[in-house]
Amino acid sequence: MTLAVAIDPNMLEVTVWTRGVTLAKEARDTATLLAKAGKAEGKHVQSFDNYVDLPDRIGVPCKSYARISPDPIETFYEYENYRPDIVVLAEETLVKGHNILGGAKPGCVVVINTARDPEKLLKWISPKENMKHLKAVACIDANALGAGVMLTFDGTEGSGDDTKIGAGVGAAIAGAVAKATGCVKLESLVSVAENKAAVKQGYEKVTVLPVCKGEAFACGLPEDPQEIKWK
């Protein structure tokens, strides 16, 4: 690089990992909801699916993205979120075998849809050299919230999505992300989601584990212990 400038320095990048077909729509909904909520707050936003992931294959790992920025987005046509601030796993087994922290910025938060405790999943997160950037792992059992797992077929492929945005577990996961990261406000998320109860439940039920230097509680308890809820 010949010119050392940071492009989009204030942009928040959210990467939602999911499984092709079975959960692709839900992950796209999580990303879309976060972007729409950001837009409702007057931010500049984008949300899109990863184009090269082949989401039409059942169970294949694939990604949806959201971007929220106070300034106009200059890397508008960049394919992927190369430096995520927030990593969401729509399904827990994705934590294994994928470099979900690849390119992660310092202070990165991981949100996982799982019935397990965050501490149980911490050891699987990779790559290890980026663990120092990890600020917290949050878990939400979105599948158990009664919002219902919606099995949908991915296929907007650039055309409009006529289905309801945020009717299933994707809405609950978005709620959990809002609580764990503060990237958008609960009210704005509720205002754009189809299933408003799911958003609120996700927001309330999320478990947040602070991480420091790659280990749980290594930097002591946060100032407000109420933020942490153990099952």
């Binding site: 010949t2 200059e74 394919y79």
Partner: peptide, 15 residues
């Protein structure tokens, strides 16, 4: 191959 031409690549070309 559909790669984005990034800001850095434009900087490099300008140089």
């Amino acid at each position: 191959g559909g790669e984005t031409i990034t800001h850095e690549e434009f900087f490099k070309m300008a140089e």
